[in-house]
């Protein structure tokens, strides 16, 4: 029984994906249909139009195997094996370095904003740009 529910729920997710694709084409949106579908489902969940129960098991199932769905797409790298020689290696280095910087900067800037907005919310007064060490620890 659970298997049937999972299959039906994946069908529901598929319908949202198709609806996202449709909206994307009709409205000429710059983002892909799958992301439009995600936002659509999220909105309908928030508005309680779609009950969570309707997608809970299907989503959990897909998410448990998420990396598997990328494999056919990533295997496409076999048509670009020349990337792994000569100047291609330099390019790979650039991509790796840039991605490492991106992740580190993103994580720290978001945590910095989080700590500042918390401080603002607590005091509701002027927060100096440079805080003393004691304040930071508090």
């Amino acid at each position: 029984m659970k298997i049937i529910r999972i299959i039906v729920q994946i069908g529901v997710l598929y319908v949202f994906f198709l609806a996202g694709e449709f909206l994307q084409k009709q409205l000429q949106l710059p983002v892909p249909g799958s992301i439009v579908g995600l936002l659509l489902l999220f909105a309908l969940l928030l508005l309680k139009i779609v009950p969570v129960k309707m997608i809970e098991e299907g989503s959990s199932f897909i998410l448990a195997y998420l990396p598997m769905f990328f494999i056919p797409a990533t295997a496409g790298i076999m048509n670009h094996l020349d990337m792994f020689s000569g100047r291609g290696l330099l390019l790979i280095g650039i991509l790796v370095v840039s991605s490492v910087i991106t992740m580190a900067v993103t994580a720290h800037s978001s945590e910095w904003i989080a700590s500042r907005s918390k401080a603002l919310g607590n005091r509701r007064t002027f927060v100096p740009l440079i805080r003393s060490k004691k304040e930071k620890e508090a």
Binding site: I10, L13, Y14, F16, F17, G20, E21, G33, S34, I35, G37, L38, L39, L41, F42, L45, L46, V52, I55, E56, G58, S59, S60, I62, L63, L66, M68, F69, F70, I71, P72, A73, A75
Partner: peptide, 24 residues
């Protein structure tokens, strides 16, 4: 390979949609 791979690839769309669940 993609004759078969395509079928898994097609589930990538609903897989992205399913991220709405943890988000919610």
């Amino acid at each position: 390979y993609m004759i078969g791979g395509e079928w898994i690839n097609r589930l990538l769309g609903p897989a992205v949609v399913s991220l709405a669940y943890p988000l919610y």
